[in-house]
Simulated scan of single mutants.
Amino acid sequence: MRFTLCLILAAFLGIQPALAEDPAGDPVDQLSQLLPNTTIDGFGPTPIPGLFEVTAGDQIFYFSPTGHLVFGEIWTKDGRSLTAERREQVIAEKIKRLPLQKSLTIGNGPHQVIEFTDPDCPFCRKVDAFFANRSDVTRHVFFYPIAGLHPKAAPKARYILCSDDRERAMREVYAGAWDSEALPPLANGCQETLLDEHLQLGGMLGVRGTPTIWVDGTAIKGADLAAIAALLDQPSKQ
């Protein structure tokens, strides 16, 4: 099968003479020389001879032992993005390792839902109202307030996480109860760092906006209620 490499950005880096003179050397060692401060999570071959796939955090890029880094996507001749498919696989593995005990868990239905949500995002509130009417889901809610868009969202997320009854507090916030009033003081001994952990987990998964949702492991972009309902109408994967 022929493959086309779509280059969004290619960085042609200067390489050490030893690297150039030994193209048959260990490519992992060569990459480490080029990117000594980058944590490499995965490294493997691609269908293109001499080009290796690199995963680092939420990024996938490519490396050639000639000293080149390529940031872009590999497409097949029939229009499949191998990069996108691989990215979904990487994220799916990370989702399996999410510490769900750190989430706000709501419900006990057979369908497993993971949400990254912003308390002041209108689309997130729309999704919350949708799930509130479903009894067939277990929701694992992580808060991901986007300060640039919703400067009051982070305090609301902390209020929810610091409440004795987090589910009730979330209902209040997402119903708009504190949109025009000052939030109550946080509960004594509250671990405010939990929100920071939620933000770090969202960054690990490459969350860029809210709502970001997975239903039984399938990603949903935005508040696509029809797509969510279609997945929930299928048998659960439990």
Rank of each mutant, 00 (worst) to 15 (best):
I160P: 02
K94V: 08
P235M: 01
P99S: 02
L205P: 06
P145L: 14
H150L: 04
F61T: 04
D22H: 15
G206A: 06
R80Q: 09
I40M: 10
A24Q: 14
P45F: 07
F123Y: 15
A157R: 03
T193M: 01
L31N: 01
E197R: 03
I91G: 10
V28S: 12
L231W: 11
D58N: 11
F123E: 09
R168K: 11
A227H: 09
E181P: 02
G202W: 00
I228V: 14
T210D: 00
G79S: 08
Q238L: 01
S103Y: 08
I8Y: 06
G14N: 06
V70E: 00
E181Q: 13
Y144D: 12
S180M: 09
A18F: 01
A187C: 08
E21A: 13
H198L: 03
S64R: 14
S32W: 10
F130S: 10
A219H: 10
Q112Y: 09
P36E: 04
T212S: 15
Y62D: 00
I15S: 11
D118Y: 00
D224C: 05
G222W: 02
Q30F: 07
S81K: 08
F130A: 13
C124P: 15
I8V: 04
M170Q: 10
L69F: 03
Q33R: 15
F43I: 07
L69W: 10
L19R: 06
V173C: 10
H111Q: 06
G67K: 08
A129T: 11
T105I: 09
Y174V: 07
P184K: 10
S32E: 05
P45T: 08
A84P: 00
A18E: 15
I220A: 11
V173I: 03
E197P: 04
R171A: 07
L19G: 10
V173K: 00
V113C: 09
R139L: 15
G176Q: 05
E21S: 06
L201I: 10
L7N: 02
V28H: 13
K152T: 10
P151D: 08
L149G: 14
W178I: 09
R134V: 09
V54N: 01
R125Y: 12
L194W: 02
G79P: 02
V141P: 05
Y159C: 06
R139Q: 15
D118W: 00
G209H: 15
A154C: 08
K77W: 01
I74N: 06
V113E: 13
M1K: 01
T66W: 11
F123C: 13
D164G: 14
K102C: 02
D118S: 11
Q33K: 15
D22M: 07
G217L: 08
P17K: 03
P45V: 09
T210N: 09
